[in-house]
Amino acid sequence: MAKNLRGDLQVASANRLVDGMVVFLDAAAQWTDRLDRADVARDEKAAERLLERARAESATVVDPFLVAVTEDGAGRIEPLSLREKIRAAGLTFAAIAAESVRYA
């Protein structure tokens, strides 16, 4: 059960400039492609500071923004919105493979 449905928990995300890949800001102010390493802001003040830090580190990424997340009992975080879930986890169907001549 999600602790927080209003999205008080936030992570900072962006797309990496060189390749567009989805990245998150970690506690060491580095961009990582791993959501589980993202620095989580736990209140509004922390979220503001997180976004500021993300913007300060935005030379290598495009347009950082905050993503509302939930955290389960095991400390695993997941974005709230479907859009951000898809950004974090990828396509919700299997794309056709380069060498396949049939789908699925």
Partner: peptide, 13 residues
């Protein structure tokens, strides 16, 4: 084809 993402084609296709 049934169940495929419409309009997608692989390089091989």
């Amino acid at each position: 084809p049934a169940g495929a993402p419409p309009g997608d084609a692989s390089a091989a296709q």
